[in-house]
Each structure stands twice: as structure tokens, then as C-alpha cells.
Simulated assay, not measured.
Amino acid sequence: MTQPLLKVENLSKHFPIHGGVLRRVTAQVKAVNDVSFEIAPGEVVGLVGESGSGKTTVGRTLLRLEEATSGSVRFGGTDIMSLSTREMRAYRKRMQIIFQDPFASLNPREKVREIVSHPLRLHRIGSESDRIDRVVALLEKVGLGTEHLERFPHEFSGGQRQRIGIARALAVEPEFIVADEPVSALDVSIQAQVINLLEDLCQDLGLTMFFIAHDLGVVEHFCDRVIVMYLGRIVEMGRSEDIYARPNHPYTRALLSAAPQPRPGRRRDRVILKGDIPSPIDPPSGCVFRTRCPLADAECARVVPPLEAVGTGHLSACIKTR
């Protein structure tokens, strides 16, 4: 088997809550709890789940934009969690991110030319003229032109800003990209262009991608494997065709039943979840999904269900559906 490019083991990220006059830690927001998975070279893995499930935190922690509370992340066999700031800089070139918010992720005081060329200057790639040529080529790939080089971010629409962010992430030709909702701010027609662009780049350059999204249709089309998260835990993962054709976990079934179907003949039985997602400060005991699960009983409150195989490469964390 091909060795994984990225191997995540027992990753957790908790954010402390401070209170009182002395600002002591009074509670923890358990954003990510005991998450483990692997990504092979050239693979596109999708991460789906409701808002507040911990998807963005996982992506940021993989790149050490957030420091993990516990666990390890091995990139190319190296545990990057143990690297110093100086040692980590070399890995920044190999690992990049496309941020979710195109309004907050760009420096409002820099022109597009400076924004996209900044990674090239930071890593000392090429001469100044080479960098400009590279910036122009990147802008053309994401649907912008040379006339946009001297403009500031406030002069663009949200979709155009996101394309600038994508160009910046691709500037240093990374091996691995975390794409955090990269098309959520774009019009539908532009979404298709950007997804096709990312797909072509993955094939042409051998990119490996961790694709965070809400659009289950895009994930089905674009991703080789899918990970489903709920309240900081992985509840199911497997190949895209298995997840979409044979979802095992009740939460996965609910997500897929809520997704619009372009072909009415494929419509699934609607699963309506009751209540809201619980607070990550005090998640439910046992299975975190049990407070909204139609199959839950007393056993679900006592047992934290492990991810176990329900098919070839298909894992699910539910003791009621195996």
C-alpha cells in the first residue's frame, strides 16, 4: 500500500474559557475530540458536517494554524507537531490553505500583485520579474486578468476575493492543500469553474487535498473519500461511492436526505432531526449524536462507539446499525 502523505492520530483541540477576576480556566470548548484518519498522496478527502461540528478547526490544526491539545499529525512521515517554528517554515511551502472567508483572509492594504506574490517572496522563489509572471499566470487560471493586479481587495466581489485566495494558496506549488469551503462564496457558474480548476490541478500537479464543504453534491463529485463529523468526532468515513450509496450512521443518512437531488428518482426518505446541535462545552456522554438520533437508547448514553468496519474501507461509529 502507498504510504499516507498525511496521518492524523487521536487529534484533539480544546479551547479554554476563562472567567472570574483571576481569569482562570473555567471550562473547555471541545471543538475536536480524538480524530484519526489518513490521506494518501494525490487523494482528495472531503470533510462534511453541520456548522459547529469542528471541520474548520480540524483543517487549521492540521497546518498548525491552531496548536493541537493532543494527538499527532505526520506529514510525509514527520510529526509536524514536534517541529520548532524555524523547522515548520519549510513545511509551510508544502502545505497551504484556502480560507473560508474571502473578506477576512486578504490584507486590505495590499494590492492583488502583493497578496499573491507574498508567499513567493517569503520563500525566496524567483526574481521579482519571475514572480510577477507567476502571479499573472495564477490569476488567469482562477478567472482574473492583468487588469486586476493593481487593485485592492475592497474593489472585488466576494467571489473574486476567493479566487485571489486560491491563487495565493497555489503560488508556491504545494503538495497538500486544506480547502476550507473554497466555493461557498461563489456564484453557481463560478463554483463549477473553480471546482474544475481544482480538479485539474490535483490531476496535473499530483496535489493532495483536504476539502471541507457543506455542499454534499460537490463532495460526491470531487472527493475520493468522505469523512463525516458531528460535534468534534468522526461518525463515518469511507469511499464516496460507499458513503452516498450505503450510508450507515444515522447522522450521515440525515445529512444526505436533506441534500437537494437533481434527479427526483434518487430522492431518499427524509430524515428530520429534532433539536439543535449540543454545546461543545458539555457534549453528551456516550455517543455525541444520541440526543438527536431516532435509534438512541440507554446503551448509547453509556458507550462511546468506536469507528468499526461496515465494509471495505468503510467505517462507522454506531452500535445500532452494524
Rank of each mutant, 00 (worst) to 15 (best):
V116I: 13
A167I: 10
R86V: 03
I319G: 05
S117F: 03
E87G: 09
F222G: 09
P41A: 13
G126K: 00
H221I: 04
G275Q: 07
R161D: 05
I281P: 12
D133E: 11
N10H: 08
T61H: 08
S36I: 09
R89K: 07
L65I: 05
E67G: 04
P119K: 04
N196R: 08
V303C: 02
R168A: 06
E147Q: 12
N10Y: 12
S279W: 02
E308M: 05
I177W: 11
R225T: 03
A259M: 08
V219N: 01
D282C: 13
V288K: 01
A171D: 08
K274N: 14
V44Y: 13
G49R: 09
G313C: 08
L295W: 13
F99M: 00
V32P: 02
M209T: 06
P280F: 00
Q203G: 10
R161A: 03
P305S: 03
N10W: 04
H221L: 06
K274R: 15
L255K: 05
R322W: 14
G145T: 12
K320F: 14
E220Y: 06
S70Y: 10
E236C: 12
I115A: 06
T26G: 11
S70K: 10
E66P: 07
H18L: 14
L62W: 14
M88I: 08
K7Q: 11
A179K: 10
P262L: 11
I80Q: 08
L231H: 00
F156P: 02
I125Y: 02
S129P: 01
A245K: 07
Q3R: 15
V21I: 15
V135H: 04
S316K: 08
F156I: 07
E199Y: 14
S316Q: 11
I39N: 03
N196D: 14
A258C: 13
H249D: 09
L256M: 04
V116D: 11
I98Q: 00
Y244A: 01
T69R: 03
E199L: 11
G59M: 09
Q3P: 03
A213G: 12
R270L: 14
I277C: 06
G165V: 08
F15N: 10
R267P: 08
S105D: 01
P247C: 03
V271H: 02
V48K: 01
Q160M: 10
P264Q: 11
R124D: 15
G52I: 07
R121W: 14
D133L: 01
I17R: 05
E128W: 04
T208L: 09
T69D: 03
P4I: 12
D34F: 09
L120P: 03
R24F: 09
L197G: 07
R253W: 03
P284N: 06
N196L: 05
H314T: 08
D215I: 08
M229R: 06
A167R: 11
E299H: 09
S240I: 06
S12Y: 05
A296D: 14
I319R: 13
I272L: 15
R268T: 01
R225E: 02
S36T: 10
N196F: 05
D204E: 15
G76N: 06
F75K: 01
Q3H: 07
P119C: 05
A137M: 05
R302I: 03
P16S: 12
I227G: 03
T208H: 10
T146P: 04
T2M: 13
I281M: 13
Y230S: 00
D224E: 12
G49P: 03
F15Q: 12
R270Q: 13
Q193F: 06
I115H: 04
I177L: 14
